[in-house]
Design a protein around this nucleic acid. Structure first.
Lengths: 355, 355
DNA sequence: CTGAAAGCGCTTACAG
DNA sequence: CTGAAAGCGCTTACAG
């Protein structure tokens, strides 16, 4: 609360070039008067109530259009006891993912009168649930979109249920009912990556996993193993190392894998950042990519195409997932927006193993 | 408007696990009753009006705290004829910049009760101004933050003035009064980059510029030339090529520069994306970095450190700029938040020229 | 199918 | 310094 601020020098802030205050916008009362109906009837038209004769609806609609009337979301929200705001709650270090998701959500929300309010937060914080509760409660959010990994937090969704606040989770596994879930199907992409490497002839393959506690860690690994299994390949125990979806953890993981006596001819890093770390270690060790080492990432960030050689990686349909999340929030389960599958983008970081 | 949606199966959406509806939150009336004052007095306390005795203020504040009362921003907004929402209006392809800026803005807004509503838009669209007007008007935005390059659009700010909607522009040049401007001082960073290259002994230096029409194009170039001038160096005409802040434009620019008969020993690309394009061309041509070609970028995106060799680039204080923008919007000109200067991050893409 | 009254939770403008 | 009344622009619950 910093409300006194707006009272300070209220005139001084008005630049001299400022023209007369803008004409008052039409309200529901204006429309009602002009249409010769009660405001309640205008309200019914706004809210698409069936309890209006076609003729009345036409007349009122015409006047609404004519005057460019738009109902005030604030007033409407106050009466509805619910705002027209959608909260985007996330704790994701991947800026590209967040911005792309925002774009998809905004796509899905376009023309609906809803707005997107961003709310980054800290997964580690022990006030996380209370923070989000305060946010949802204070703004009387219409709904919330939860991005991974905090979309996996059931304490969060339990709190939202308690509040009666809708939500949609974007997640890599079936963590909820379909109407509250947009699933990323990481397995499909990682299985394809595994098939690709196997088809190239790689037998000994390294895996740098996501962080423990992230659902995507499990999904990506399982998909990858399933893909290998189709080629009767298995991941050697020593060829699996932990990662944290960070560049540094990719470096660390690659060091471990590439210092193995029998070192892998290919490495699948569970995201592009870690794959970039593998590049770095390969360079330090004088291994050339892909001749000495094939590398596959996950995300298809812009960076992946800037690396040298350009990285083979998995692209997932983030924009479409965002659109779908918005649709589920606004329209409920009824709208099953199409979300294409993740797919492998083959570039130049993969080739058959030497010899 | 899709208001009928929320009426459909209102019960069905309530999961069975859902506990009783949450206790009604305290309102101004509850506090007034409990404190034995009128709601107007509570309102005065909320709004830090001086017209309340210290004793009354104490008593009311205690009850507010005790009940965890928070005034409803929607109701307050309706009465104030202004919301507590800040619009972030941008058309910037750099996801990292946008997310980092969001973070800074949110930092600056924290605890104030204001929220950030994202509104990406299209610079090219001829309905841009009307789109933003509708947005600001409909939501009765408290204020708007404009990111480059649309922060340079005076039609936009004129419209906002006309609406009486505060704004702060984030821009690379003095485009407005200080209270409405957070300046990025690109010149400081690019001058340093020039000095760095000159000090290394480069004489023939190439420049890949930003897109025509972007103010940062001019600023970055001028700073760079100023830095060179300190070492009595000048940019050869044929060594300046247009860019568009995209990877592809960096490739194109680098091709031109590196096919010059007397080719530059160093290239300054006006952002990291274009610098990545220069890497690519250098590789294609068999030039090694930095031995055959030194490269400097601008932005210090995470990618810049993943390139090989890691890119020397200019880091600007995006978070601090965001904080400053929020402070200016909320507190007015009075708060002159500190914004550090841009600075050169020297990595391994620069060295003295060969021979 | 339509509307008058009351209310959502605040603040304004006016008294005192 | 404090408060009763009216109002912000909508919707709810209730009549008819």
């Amino acid at each position: 609360m910093r409300p006194e601020k707006q009272k300070r020098q209220p005139e001084a802030e008005r630049p001299e070039t400022m023209s007369a205050p803008p004409a008052r916008r039409a309200t529901i009362n204006d429309i009602a008067r002009l249409a010769n109906v009660s405001k309640k009837t205008v309200s019914r038209v706004i809210n698409r109530s069936p309890l209006v004769t076609e003729e009345t609806r036409e007349r009122v609609s015409a006047i609404i259009r004519e005057h460019g009337y738009e109902p005030d979301p604030q007033a409407r929200g106050l009466a509805f006891r619910r705002s027209f705001l959608i909260g985007l709650v996330y704790d994701n270090p991947n800026a590209q993912f967040v911005v792309t998701m925002q774009q998809g959500l905004l796509d899905g929300v376009r023309g609906s009168g809803f707005e997107l309010v961003v709310h980054p937060c800290n997964r580690q914080s022990d006030t996380l649930v209370n923070d989000v509760r305060a946010f949802a409660q204070r703004q009387k959010l219409y709904g919330v979109v939860l991005l991974p990994p905090i979309s996996e937090n059931n304490a969060l969704t339990a709190m939202l249920d308690e509040l009666g606040c809708r939500y949609v989770r974007v997640a890599s596994a079936v963590l909820d009912v379909p109407s509250k879930l947009v699933i990323s199907n990481d397995q499909i992409g990682t299985a394809e990556a595994a098939r690709h490497l196997a088809a190239l002839g790689h037998k000994r393959i390294g895996l740098i996993e996501g962080p423990v506690g992230f659902r995507s860690r499990i999904e990506r690994r399982e998909g990858f193993e399933a893909g290998l299994a189709e080629h009767d390949l298995k991941l050697a125990k020593e060829c699996c190392v932990d990662g944290a979806y960070t560049f540094d953890s990719g470096i660390e993981g690659a060091r471990k894998l590439l210092s193995l006596k029998n070192r892998p001819t290919a490495i699948f890093a569970c995201n592009d950042e870690m794959a970039a770390g593998v590049y770095q270690v390969a360079r330090e060790m004088g291994l050339s990519i892909p001749e000495d080492l094939s590398i596959v990432g996950f995300d298809d960030t812009p960076m992946s195409a800037r690396l040298w050689p350009p990285l083979t990686t998995i692209r997932w349909p983030i924009v479409e997932m965002g659109r779908s999340a918005a649709a589920k929030l606004l329209d409920g389960a009824e709208s099953e927006a199409e979300v294409p599958e993740a797919k492998l983008i083959v570039r130049n970081s993969t080739s058959p193993p030497k010899r």
